[in-house]
Write a protein that binds this DNA or RNA. Structure first.
Lengths: 205, 205
DNA sequence: TCCATATTGTAGTGCTCGCTACAAATGTGG
DNA sequence: CCACATTTGTAGCGAGCACTACAATATGGA
């Protein structure tokens, strides 16, 4: 059997370029022409490799979350809820203003409201944002079980709160806020979690 | 001199309908066909009255902020920084989940990232969001001068923080969070400002 | 060497976009 | 009742959209 003409581009490299376009212009604002030019390929190659514009977005989102996985694990491995929050928010302040990427977070910039033809894109992004919140909730539940968070603390509410602050920072970054501005916001938020922490945590590790 | 055929629609009513379409679908996701249908007019009437799609958005934004002006003044008239924040965030939790409007905030849902042809729409929205932050900053500066906020408090940072939380809540609301969820976030954030308040404020009002 | 298979580049497809030309309609002032 | 000014509805403009038909090209296997 024959194998066929080999593809001239690297799938993941092309996906990185597409990610950047979606990140900067949003799903609806990104055109196939912009995407193909950034990816260095022609439309038929794009459609053969990814299927559709929306499927390309999903592939880019998969790669986006996969890229942050290692960092997320490092964040969640911090010994206390307060330290988890601090690493998380300070990391976000840095990442969202990293000049080697578009500002903000792809899961927000991708599109909060879309036209009727792409109505499920906002859902897709929201579902991926919810994953981070869930990871935080689990971590905070563990913190409470370990006596690190106060008895009165609500892990789900805290996770929602941290998640909301992250989103707010993302929007700030996308409209031009610099790292110091984001770090100031992070600092205030970190104290909120600190406030609900037990003063002398068990710190069993 | 003659006066001409009278217009058959009310400008502000039509603007309200347009506002809702932009709110629900974003600037790029809203089509002229959707707008004219919601406004109950035909394209030539829209263009004669507002000039262009972008000018229509700006008119809708003007109306949006004008509508909230009275509420903002009521919020800012609260006696302490803590109370200002509480009224603000609890009001936001309620307004952003009010079923008589699309969820979230028009200044966020309108569009964070846009295609190259509408690049200044995100700027326009960011500028309007910045106004709220500025109002909060002024109010917090006054609070500090009145001895209501601690000496160590940074009014600008606090205003940025509250502004970021509002934005985060807006995104949460747009992806389906209910009022209780938003109120929980608000509650945590309010405690952050409380923490920077002087325990027995001068409360000179 | 020739076939089978897959990708490539060119050049479009139909469709919807924001926007407008134009003529009929509807009012006021003389 | 006529002349003028403005709006209305119809119909359609060029441009750009996501997407694809097709032929040329490049590989591995027989």
């Amino acid at each position: 059997m024959a194998i066929g003409r080999p593809r001239t581009f690297d799938r993941d490299t092309a996906l990185d370029q597409a990610m950047e376009v979606f990140w900067r212009h949003g799903y609806e604002g990104a055109t196939i022409a912009q995407l193909t030019e950034a990816m260095g390929i022609n439309p038929p190659s794009l459609y053969a490799a990814f299927g559709s514009k929306e499927a390309l977005l999903k592939a880019a989102l998969d790669r986006y979350t996969a890229r942050r996985e290692a960092w997320m694990e490092e964040v969640l491995s911090a010994p206390t809820a307060r330290e988890v929050t601090a690493r998380m928010l300070m990391g976000v302040a840095e990442k969202q203003t990293d000049p080697s990427n578009p500002p903000g977070c792809l899961l927000v910039q991708g599109g909060l409201a879309c036209g009727s033809g792409s109505a499920n894109v906002p859902f897709e992004l929201a579902a991926r944002r919810a994953q981070t919140e869930e990871q935080l909730r689990h971590r905070f539940e563990r913190a409470k079980a370990e006596g690190d968070l106060a008895e009165a603390a609500d892990p789900a509410a805290l996770a929602r709160y941290v998640s909301a602050v992250i989103t707010g920072m993302s929007v700030m970054a996308s409209s031009g806020a610099d790292r110091e501005a984001l770090a100031q916001v992070a600092e205030v938020a970190i104290r909120s979690v600190e406030e609900q922490s037990v003063r002398a945590p068990i710190a069993a590790n």
